[in-house]
Amino acid sequence: MTGTSGSAADPESRLSPARRLLVIHNPTAGRRQRRHLAAVLSELQKEGAEVRLWETASAGDAERAARECGSDIDVVVVAGGDGTINEAINGLMAREPSQPPALGIIPTGTTNVLSRDLRIPRQADALAPLLARGMMRDIHVGCANGRYFTLMCGVGMDAHIVSRTSLRLKKKIGKLAYVMQGLREFVAGVPRRYRVEIDGAEVVEASSVIVAKSRLYGGEFQLAPRADIGKPELQVCLFLRGGRLSTLLYIIGMGLGHLDHLPGYRTVAAKAVRITGHDGDPVQLDGDPSGCLPLEIGLGKRRLSVVAP
């Protein structure tokens, strides 16, 4: 077992035995992602970590792997994007609460918002020591209609974009596929209004709603600067005004980092949120389609351990 310099782990943690890891990955991922995974696995071997690989073949495989892996696994590591990570989180949260495995991340997907929020290093020589012996922290997850999330849950324009974006096009051009579908939604300009009940008290109407656990959105933008994944709290992002002009102002404000200064936008801290209106409208969860309205959102009953600096 060899030590490393410049490790993400603290000196005391390097003295502890290396962890037993289950690494969930997609064998058909692109060449660049496969190379990155191979580099991390090579560094994990140097760290003395015990690594088992689980290949995904279809949607739901990552959730099943996280839910069914044995008690001899210390960390379930996801090599993928936020959608695959969300699957694994739902699998981990479905386990019995007594000492479930922690979550680890090898960022390789189209977007890796959670890894950015947690400040997980991408470089193999920094990431491997973190996964093998590094620090752990607890985070609070959200729960929407029985499904867990760590980033956000949304209805309105962004949910329609997510639900209608071609998966084939997404694989070819990545984030640009969302931009193209967003332009279609903008041109269509379909008016929508939603009723948002916050903590059983305040009731607000909005054209779009995003309930955030993470401060980041889309990897680079901040919708909810006060959101903290480590706190048992939701941030309700309310786009109060509809129409093309307001939507354009929201997009510009988000791009410039001044969204919270716009008069038609506000955020509210909450523990529980109910969203109704346009029943059957799509819902997005951590950037993937996830059911439809009406929507009940709250906090997970327990915290989730993650490997993060």
Rank of each mutant, 00 (worst) to 15 (best):
S7T: 15
P11W: 03
E12A: 15
E12L: 11
S13A: 15
S13G: 05
P17N: 06
R19A: 13
L21A: 05
L21Y: 04
V23D: 02
H25Y: 06
N26S: 04
T28M: 06
A29Y: 03
R31S: 09
H36K: 05
A39I: 01
V40C: 08
E43L: 06
K46A: 13
L53A: 05
W54T: 02
W54L: 05
G60R: 03
G60Y: 02
R67F: 05
R67A: 15
D72N: 04
D72H: 08
V77Q: 05
G81Y: 01
I89L: 11
L92C: 01
L92I: 04
M93G: 02
A94H: 02
A94F: 00
R95M: 01
S98D: 13
L103K: 07
G104L: 02
T108H: 04
G109A: 09
L114W: 02
S115L: 03
D117G: 03
R122V: 13
Q123I: 07
A124E: 01
A124F: 02
A128K: 04
P129I: 13
P129A: 15
R133I: 12
M135N: 11
M136Q: 14
G142S: 08
C143S: 12
A144M: 09
G154Q: 10
G156Q: 13
D158E: 05
I161D: 09
R164W: 05
T165W: 03
R168S: 14
R168K: 14
K175T: 08
Y178E: 05
M180D: 00
E185P: 00
F186Q: 06
V187L: 03
V187A: 14
V187S: 06
P191V: 07
R193F: 03
R193G: 03
G200W: 13
V203T: 15
V204M: 07
S207V: 01
S208D: 12
G218P: 07
E220C: 07
F221Y: 14
L223D: 07
I229A: 04
L234I: 06
L238F: 03
G243K: 12
L245E: 04
T247V: 10
L248C: 13
G253C: 08
L256S: 07
G257V: 09
L259T: 05
P263C: 09
R266P: 06
R274S: 14
P282G: 09
P282E: 01
Q284V: 06
L285D: 03
G287F: 02
L295R: 08
L295V: 01
E296N: 15
G298Y: 10
P309Y: 09
